[in-house]
Amino acid sequence: MNKDITNIKSGKEMLDDFFNEFEQIPKINQNLAVVLKNLYKDNKFTNTNITNALSDLRKEEEK
């Protein structure tokens, strides 16, 4: 066996890693990243919640 199965990530591990690291993607809006990260952490990562959160964020940034 040439590769250890323990190196293979499960779906949950992949998601956790992604949402812990995606803020480091160059040129992304950090406020938006925080909003998405919190929705994922709170198990509220749905389209309705994202649409509402992005709209609130826009209003905040337009001030």
């Binding site: 992604f18 040129k27 992304i28 809006n29 990243a33």
Partner: peptide, 20 residues
């Protein structure tokens, strides 16, 4: 602001697809 959100979401989506 909308362009910034769109650009960030595109980058995030593209990175997500790559990771998946």
């Amino acid at each position: 602001i909308l362009d910034s959100q769109l650009s960030s979401l595109r980058l995030i989506y593209s990175e997500f697809v790559k990771r998946q």
